[in-house]
Design a protein around this nucleic acid. Sequence first.
DNA 1: TCATGCTATGAAACTCGTTGCATATCAACC
DNA 2: GGTTGATATGCAACGAGTTTCATAGCATGA
Lengths: 185, 185
Amino acid sequence: MMADVALEHAILVSLLEQPGSGYELARRFDRSIGRFWTATHQQIYKVLRRMEADGWVTAEEIGQDGRPDKRCYTVAEPGRDALTGWLREPVQPETVRHELAVKIRGAAFDDAAGRAALITEVERYRADHETTLRRYLTGEQRDFPDPADLDAGQRLQHVVLRGGIEYERMVLAWLDDVLHTLHDL
Amino acid sequence: MMADVALEHAILVSLLEQPGSGYELARRFDRSIGRFWTATHQQIYKVLRRMEADGWVTAEEIGQDGRPDKRCYTVAEPGRDALTGWLREPVQPETVRHELAVKIRGAAFDDAAGRAALITEVERYRADHETTLRRYLTGEQRDFPDPADLDAGQRLQHVVLRGGIEYERMVLAWLDDVLHTLHDL
DNA sequence: TCATGCTATGAAACTCGTTGCATATCAACC
DNA sequence: GGTTGATATGCAACGAGTTTCATAGCATGA
């Protein structure tokens, strides 16, 4: 029981790094946290309400000038305990869902026109990942200009970002391999 | 409409490569196909029944000696059409779920004992990925001993496998980076 | 004044996939 | 004869996450 529950813990980490509203969390999930955990705002609001009911977080209504009010969430002790308990559980094996790999193998059962369309699609996909890599590298220079001078939290954020960077580089190299293979077919 | 629907197409590709029963598919998803698309036997049986009802596949009851009967599935024309239609749709952006990355950033909010436990867990996780890499490399030597002498389908399978191999190598290098970072904290 | 767009939150319906359970055949072994 | 284990299929209940829709305040510009 307790299951893996997933999103709760990503939210706890994000709120510990910096308290904020559901809307702000949703934007973080579109940027930094979203590199390794995606979530929509609907899901975030739903989970935040449950976490508040469970006493994991506390909410504070904040009136703002020139904008709608917001509910700012902060992690409470039970939430912190839930997180440290989860941190000690074994990491679940990743459940991989790589759609492009399925399509590449599927291309064996399509005609020349289909394979040509796939090449175009792989090229577009590759451009997206190149953009992502550039965004990561820009973010790295902005957030970690002096890697020797970081506190523990920043070093951990940095090593996760380096993982994202190496992943993108690996994907780009593999997509070149894929394109060569498709062209030589 | 039509959504991404996911598993159907992975099953279609697998059945086109080789017709088989739900049980056989489940084992393939634990090995080859499962590298980039995971599925349990319950889900596979459920989807196969739906695909049969939709006319995407046809089933044949096969009595066997020394084993229970099985239902062998073959892709029908509508299924093939559904696949080629899907192949021409844009690849959806991956929805990343990297639990370990969340835990690493979460370690900033845990004590020394928690970080020590995380190091142990990362080492176990690393050993798993090393095993996976070795399995891929063994499979590559077995299935593609002569890369110059492959048909289109095999070349596509091979390039997907190379992606898996490079992914594992990248993960192992990153995990070493993670371990150094955690030790130096 | 109207449209657009960003900030901000949420409900309802649905789909996908997991977990736990149930069933059955047959081989091999003790 | 009874257990274990592989083969083989499936249901029911649940949980996580997506999609669609709805609401509302306020700013900016046409």
